[in-house]
Nucleic acid binder design. Structure first.
Lengths: 193, 193
DNA sequence: AAATAGGATTGATATAGATCAAGAGGGGGG
DNA sequence: CCCCCCTCTTGATCTATATCAATCCTATTT
């Protein structure tokens, strides 16, 4: 159950056997089936979630009922409403399950304890945040500068594994366009090749 | 020269006098005048910059020569091309000076040394990254879900200090719209009130 | 005071992408 | 085998925002 997490951690820092054993105690393993909610908008986000298997997504529902996908989280990714988790305010995202999933949950207090007990994890979290930040920045730069077709191409180039696995209309939402537009973009691309 | 930085750090972690003294040794203080480049696209980003006074901005120039502002950094903010800084690859942003500035620079090696010497800074950096990440996420959610007027209102509500200080066309660029559009948005808003 | 330059505004037009609406597969469950 | 649900596609419009172009304003320089 902890394989992917350990692999992920060991790629960034090195932990001793004992620390790895101890680490396990801070997490709650859990399984979710397709379409199950992990977090609902309005509830406080009690956990940060690490995905061992399957795929989750976070999304926002606007006043017109449209879903706007914020993040896909396949195995090896973390997901949460960081703001809600940190401040205890009601979450503004929903998180649910796209593919039957096995995850590891950690609460705010457990996280604090863990960082006290295993200081190297402070470094891991810092690197993790740094990397997420970088990819967010690139995503922003991308939405500011490019248009539909280029954005789509960029995404599938960088995330081939995700592109295959999610329904097209969710991809469209993630990319900030309608399903119709994405469909037309893809048709254009087929013609070209 | 270190007042703002220390204040910023002490709001998140607590350092002893000795550590604060030691901290200073890792930074290079520097002054910049208006319009001066701190980083040019194509060069590797050697420093992360903390702004003590004045204001910097990072931006990308597209193929048509249009500037797309990625970040404003007034006093108390960090700025860099994190990706370039981390990997040593050529920067994809320019960073320059909007208001005559006093800054603190830290190099990659100095940063590593610092984190070794003062482990509490690992925590500070983690929290810093976390907070930036949160605001990035909100910005993305915002560009995905809202349109021009709402985006403008959101920005000035959250960053009144910045809104006043930068030329309107840069604000427009940051918000992902043209100067003309922002001008019209503001005109609309005036009428309403 | 004239000249210059960097913003901001305003109007006319163009366009990428949204929205609305209808159909077309294509599985799985009864 | 048929029906229902879900997803994707396609076509016809609509709209927010971009683009192009001209002025205007204000501050600074000469």
């Amino acid at each position: 159950m902890f394989e992917i997490l350990f692999e992920h951690i060991n790629r960034k820092i090195s932990l001793q056997e004992a620390e790895m054993e101890q680490l396990k105690t801070f997490f709650i393993p859990k399984k979710y089936r397709r379409k199950q909610y992990v977090l609902q908008q309005g509830d406080p986000c009690k956990y940060i979630v690490f995905v061992e298997k399957g795929m989750l997504r976070s999304y926002q529902v606007d006043d017109k009922g449209n879903e706007h996908i914020v993040q896909f989280a396949p195995e090896g990714w973390w997901i949460s409403d960081s703001y809600s988790f940190l401040t205890g305010t009601p979450a503004s995202y929903d998180i649910d399950v796209l593919e039957e999933a096995e995850v590891l949950l950690i609460t705010q207090p457990a996280m604090e304890e863990m960082l006290q007990a295993i200081p190297a994890m402070e470094r891991y979290m810092r690197i993790l945040m740094q990397n997420s930040l970088i990819s967010m920045q690139r995503r922003i730069a991308c939405t500011l500068t490019t248009q539909a077709e280029e954005r789509y191409l960029g995404f599938i180039a960088e995330n081939p594994h995700i592109g295959q696995r999610v329904p097209q209309h969710m991809l469209a939402s993630f990319l900030g366009m309608t399903p119709e537009t994405l469909s037309r973009v893809r048709k254009q691309l087929l013609k070209k090749s």
